[in-house]
Amino acid sequence: MLSKFDYYKPKSIKEALDYLDNNDETRILAGGTDLMILLRRNAITCKHILDIKAIPEIQRFDYKNGEGLYIGAGVNVNQIVDSEIIEEKYPALHQAAASLASYQLRNRATLVGNICNASPGGDLPPVLLVYDAEVHIIGPEGEKMVNIKDFFLGVKKTILKDNEIVLGVLLPDVEEGDNSVYLKQSRLKGHDLATVGVAARRNNENKISLAIAAVAPIPLKLTELEDVINEKGLSNDLPDWVEGEIKKYISPISDVRSSKEYRIHISGVLAKRALQTLIEKEVN
């Protein structure tokens, strides 16, 4: 690691924001599971590390009836996996979290880190997309809530400014009967990045939402396809139809993890299976 940095661990948001304002080339550290690797590989360099783990607000992790689920920037992925309320109310989030990396990595990795890293193949963003999650950002100008679909700009790029911090993510509340699923294909059964990841949700009004990772520079919400699906309405033929149809809405690339052809193929398979799960649940 060529970076030479000092280390600052503020106890309040104000201290953190002040520090960011006054110190260029600062990197925010929560779990560090991406940051430390980038620093080690000298893929990035920085002069300051701002460890936000001592800020009380970022540990917020609660579900409130009528408001929804709030996951603070300090909440690690295993906390999400272990949450019974998430498994019950937001099953896709539980599944995506449980599929993310290895057990020990999940003890450090955070959901907020997973979105700030803005990897096209991140497991959690598609789930946040189908739940219309809001990203809670704070900066010198104050707080704001940004819809997750507006958060990503490109590979490793988000709208977040250098002097801003993501405090947490809010998933709006779900009604009784809401269901979701996350399916992922990887290269082995052990921990791996998603070759493709698909999140699908069916709300209590039987509206389908679909989002997909690793087929574009950013995680995609397939809004046009959703519209067509929701116009057609749910049927037993729908999953098979979507398997073919989804290919019109994505244009993945070939890279070291997968060929474009397989990404297209597996997107269809996963979307089909996801919808099968959601529709079968209804029948039973």
């Binding site: 290269r187 082995l188 059964k189 052990g190 921990h191 791996d192 990045l193 070291v256 993890r257």
Partner: peptide
């Protein structure tokens, strides 16, 4: 896996996996 110019594309456990307990 090599690129067309002969660069090794997967010189890490991230992309050059070995079997795990689940495999």
């Amino acid at each position: 896996k090599f690129s067309s110019d002969g660069t090794l594309l997967n010189p890490s456990f991230t992309d050059n996996k070995i079997p795990t307990a689940k495999d």
